[in-house]
Amino acid sequence: MNRAAAAIFLALICSGCPKRIDFGPTGPITQAEELFRLTSASQDRVATLQGDGKLRLQSPQGSGTVSAYLAASRPGLLRVEMFDFFNRPIAVLVTDGQRFGLFQAQENKYYQGPATPRNLSRFLPIALPSEELVSVMLGKVPFIPAERMTLALDNEQGLYVLTLHRGSVAQVLHIHPKYLQVVRSEVRGAPAYGLEYDGFKEQGGVLFPHEVRLVASTADTSLGLRYTDITLNESPDLTLFDLSAPEDVPVVEVDEGGEALPPVSLPPASPGS
């Protein structure tokens, strides 16, 4: 943005706002690249999360809300336990970013294999790589690799609108002007999901969204996550990410596409053994 454009931008900020916008200690930002840099830094302040929440699914196949215990640590460590209304376990997903384990209580089976988006979608209705899913849960919006950026101001909502452009694809980011946190992300020109963050609260010196909504409009599906009692940036308990199958539960090994592999046949015992 050149000086003339910046002057126009500032003039619009000062004269065209229906309500006063609090830009925080940085003041109004007029350069798209600077806003992107500061927003990226604000997203990197949370590395681990652990605690309780509620998961809500809306899809053509049905809708519902369940209680959940969640533990996540960048880049790809994740554990999600689901419980029914009576606090009985429904399912447990664990991944270290490379492999996954999934216990399905109703089937009494433990699925394990590569942590591909297809395999993780056995547990969650939206197929994402584990590292991307962890980022979303930790309040970090994945950005497209931009070739250029443009910046505007939504006077009505009081938000920056930062658009990342790559060819015919654009990612539109609505950013809080004071806290420099993304509150909404939408990708246009390519199949992708949208993100919404809300319920920002200061916790441990970090402003963190306690409500996350992931929307896959092409599949008419959304996944909502509301944190109720969590801790941030504590040293992770690595035993939570143990991929060992529960005792006395049949194990089903699956391939990258989620197809069950044939059981491994043990060689016959040699005579006299």
Rank of each mutant, 00 (worst) to 15 (best):
R3N: 06
A5Q: 11
I8P: 00
I8S: 08
I13T: 02
S15I: 04
S15V: 04
G16D: 13
R20W: 05
I21R: 09
D22I: 07
T26I: 00
I29F: 08
T30V: 15
Q31Y: 10
E34Q: 15
F36I: 14
F36L: 15
R37N: 12
L38E: 11
A41V: 12
S42N: 09
Q43F: 01
V46H: 04
A47D: 10
A47G: 08
T48I: 03
Q50M: 02
K54V: 09
R56L: 07
L57H: 08
Q58W: 11
Q58P: 00
S63P: 02
G64A: 06
A68S: 11
R74L: 09
R74D: 06
P75W: 05
P75C: 04
V80C: 12
V80G: 09
V80Q: 11
E81V: 03
F85V: 13
F86Y: 12
R88Q: 10
R88M: 04
P89R: 05
I90D: 00
I90L: 13
V92H: 01
L93W: 02
V94H: 00
V94Q: 06
Q98M: 03
Q98L: 01
F100Q: 00
F100Y: 09
Q104I: 06
Q104K: 14
N108A: 01
Y111Q: 00
Q112N: 07
P114D: 03
P117I: 08
P117L: 03
P117S: 01
L120T: 06
F123K: 02
I126K: 13
I126A: 09
L128N: 06
V134N: 08
V134E: 07
S135F: 00
M137N: 11
L138H: 14
G139H: 12
G139C: 11
G139D: 09
F143Q: 06
F143Y: 11
A146M: 07
E147C: 04
T150V: 14
L151A: 04
A152Y: 02
L153I: 06
D154Q: 03
D154S: 03
G158A: 03
L164H: 06
R166H: 13
S168R: 15
S168V: 11
A170W: 07
L173F: 06
H174F: 14
H174S: 15
H176A: 10
P177A: 00
P177L: 02
Y179Q: 05
Y179M: 00
Y179K: 04
Y179N: 04
L180Y: 03
L180A: 00
V182E: 05
R188C: 10
R188L: 15
G189Y: 13
A190Q: 15
P191S: 07
L195Y: 09
Y197S: 09
Y197A: 09
D198E: 12
D198S: 15
L207K: 07
L207I: 10
F208V: 01
V212F: 03
R213I: 10
L214M: 14
A216T: 12
A219C: 02
D220V: 12
D220P: 01
T221E: 01
G224E: 07
Y227Q: 01
Y227W: 09
L232F: 13
L232E: 11
L232T: 11
P236K: 14
P236H: 13
L238E: 14
T239F: 12
T239D: 14
L240I: 13
F241H: 10
D242C: 11
P246D: 03
E247V: 14
V249W: 00
V251C: 08
V251H: 09
V252T: 12
E253H: 15
D255K: 10
D255C: 08
G257D: 10
S265D: 13
P268R: 04
P271V: 02
